[in-house]
Amino acid sequence: MSIIEKALNKADQQESGSDAAADLSADVQPVAYGNADMPPDKPMSTSNDLGFRKRESFKGTQERVEIDWVRLAEMGFVTPSDVNTKTIEEYRNIKRPLVYNAFGAGSVGIARSNLILVTSSVPGEGKTFTAINLALSIANERDKKVLLIDADVARPSVSKTLGINSPSRLGLIDYLENENIAYSDIELLTNMPGLRIIPAGKLHKYSTELLSSNKMVLFAEELSNRYPDRIVIFDSPPLLAATQGEVLAKLVGQVVLVVEAEKTFQSMVLESVNKLSACDVVLLVFNKTLISLSDGYYYGYGYGQYATNSYTSGPGGSAGPNNSGS
């Protein structure tokens, strides 16, 4: 039985009342947020207060950024010019159940099925690499549109990785904090027709509270309902390093949990799965898997050069191989 299957079976047992048996390693320190001097709660906003406007009003008003595809290709990412590479095939397999759950018959019974959170247990497992590649792979399809949101607001890296970072650019946190900032002020057009991006925004000491605010809840609902033809991917903080990931997981219909093979402790996976117990669908992706080939060499095991295996968990908690990877 694999680590993932054990993790999911353990999660099922814990949901039925058994004791938890997950201990974090000593070097993983969850981020604490104090409640002193907390800003007063604001009344719940309505969708009319969220700064959304008709699509027609966006034309000619939004900032456009240019992604350097050559640079991304050198870093091992999926790019529009790639054809049938190993990475492309891996992400075709990974995205298939997610797209099916978002737009196909699999969406029945899944709230906000077109909202997908990509996270990990601890930093360094490849969640941002997975989030960006997943977004690019889906956006590369002719009839699919993707909004990629950098929700790792304490350690944002999507914009930096894509080469579009700007200290003065507004983002998610600015939007949640300031009622005068509209949605069109934070959404970036790109040189890939099916892809748009929302940066993380400025660092904020109350970022957790902003992400758990009523405005964020309504924002997620609005993204899901207003653009039913679009998949929204959130690059989230690691679940065991900060509290924001668990908060965001409650707003989406699907979660991709990235697990670094041969490195992430089983106890960490168990703890992360427990935090995702309320989620409708969880897809677990083994990243940097060490795979033996017939000639005795190994494929992958490094950032940008890897093989993946994925397992899915639906509302019933069952798991099984998704045949992603070798």
Score class of each variant (00 low, 15 high):
D82F: 00
E271F: 00
L248Q: 08
N225K: 13
S310D: 00
R169Y: 04
G304F: 06
D143V: 03
L148E: 09
R142P: 02
S18T: 14
N133D: 10
F129Q: 10
E179M: 07
R155S: 11
A307C: 12
M216Y: 07
A36W: 08
M192Q: 13
E5D: 12
L24N: 12
G296N: 03
E63P: 01
Q29K: 13
K288T: 03
T130K: 00
K288S: 02
L223K: 03
V99C: 08
I88S: 13
N178K: 08
D68A: 11
F52W: 07
L257Y: 00
N309M: 01
T61A: 13
G302M: 05
K144L: 11
L136G: 02
E5F: 04
E222H: 11
T130W: 00
K275A: 13
I197G: 07
L284C: 14
S168T: 13
F103K: 12
E246T: 15
N180D: 14
V158Y: 04
N322H: 01
M1L: 08
E260H: 12
L211S: 06
S277P: 09
G325P: 07
E66R: 11
L248Y: 02
Y301D: 10
V259F: 05
P315W: 00
N9F: 04
H204C: 09
G109L: 04
E222R: 07
A261D: 15
V28D: 01
Y206D: 14
P40I: 02
P40H: 03
V252Q: 10
L283K: 07
D295G: 11
A21I: 08
G316N: 13
R64H: 11
S137N: 15
S81A: 13
S159I: 03
Y298K: 15
